[in-house]
Simulated assay, not measured.
Amino acid sequence: MALAYLWASVCLLTLLGILSVHIMGFLEQRNKFQVEGRTVLLTGGSQGMGREVAKLLARRGANVIIVARDLKKLQAALEYVKAAAKDLSTQRFHVISADVTSESENARVISEATTWNNGRVPEIVWANAGAAKPGLFVETSVETMRKQMDINYWAAVYLAHQILKAWLYPSTPYPAASPNSKGRIKSEPPRHFIMTSSSAAFAGVAGYSPYSPAKTALRGLADALRNEILLYNGARRSPNTTKQSPTPFDIHIQTIYPGTIQSPGLEIENSSKHPVTHILESSDPVQTELEAATAAIQGLENGNYMTPTNWLGGLMRFGALGGSPKDNIIKDMLGQWLSSIVWLFVSPDLEAKVWGWGKKEGMPELKAEAK
């Protein structure tokens, strides 16, 4: 009996040890976001987190194309990114000036990037362009809210539509792949389509009503696309695919959720941010552009589908997971359970602060642009 208890204890401790290692994410160390020698197209790459992401990609050996409106900023960012290159003798860099809120401009971006890349569609595309203009809902004009949706949602939709069609239905069909001696079709490394959302997509906060709905919509798009793309990943393994030569690669959909980043964009945000929003954010962690970019790349290298860039975003993600895919089943299940308890205290506190501000300060004056 004692021996049975001993072995049971050993087995239990071993299981707990394995679970602990799994929770900490140490079992799978393989880099799942290989960029060396591949071409990355990044929108919103002339400043902020995007510029730092481009630098980190260059440091890892990628060819980098950065996209933004301001050509002068793009040229300056290009030099900054090239300075971090792993090997300038083999890596290439390019800029494209474009308004990504336009569908036709996104088509031009993919076409120009493909031509520059010697006729090969970029293997990694990152929809990072975005901007926040916070404010109270009734004080914000409908025009401003439309513009927020254009840059924070539609820009990514247009880019996704163009790149997925280019990958899945190229103008020149992929050559038919023959199986190897084991009957397996040789695969190329996966393509990655990445979207930068925001931790504002996880919880509604007073003062972000013009901005957070667009980022929440982006999260919904990512969930739907990730599920839908499995159809194509499966079809390339089907013997019944005859109408179109299947892709020799899988496609991965991934999302990044930054929080507050100390950047030029934050200064613009703060110019329209309501005082109550400042109060609600007063204890939030603030990252540098490089810290946020580093966390984003690390999440992609770990193979994560949803990557918050700071600890607060990670906690908020647990509470908002719902049916979204889990990156780590055990950690995410425990996190969801814990967050359900935490939100019992956090939600009333946030609501009390907003209510208290109204009681103390009185009725806000309606701004001219919203009249």
Score class of each variant (00 low, 15 high):
M1R: 08
P264N: 13
S339H: 11
L164C: 04
Y158L: 01
P190F: 04
A131C: 08
E79H: 14
Y5W: 09
N106M: 12
G37A: 09
K72Q: 15
A155F: 02
D284C: 03
W355P: 01
L350M: 15
S272P: 06
L366Q: 15
S9V: 07
A224T: 15
A8G: 09
I151S: 00
S104C: 06
D250Y: 04
Q162G: 01
P122M: 04
E79L: 15
I251P: 06
S111L: 10
P175N: 06
S111P: 00
N180M: 10
A222W: 01
V95W: 00
M24L: 15
Q262W: 10
Q47A: 14
I256C: 01
S97H: 02
N128T: 02
D327L: 08
V35A: 01
A98E: 10
E267L: 12
V81E: 04
E301M: 07
I96C: 05
K326H: 09
S97A: 15
I256K: 02
G204V: 08
R38T: 04
A98S: 11
L41A: 07
E139M: 10
A200K: 00
G303H: 07
D332E: 10
A200D: 06
Y169H: 13
I251H: 06
L74R: 00
V157E: 04
A8M: 04
S272F: 09
N304S: 13
Q336I: 11
A166V: 00
T90F: 11
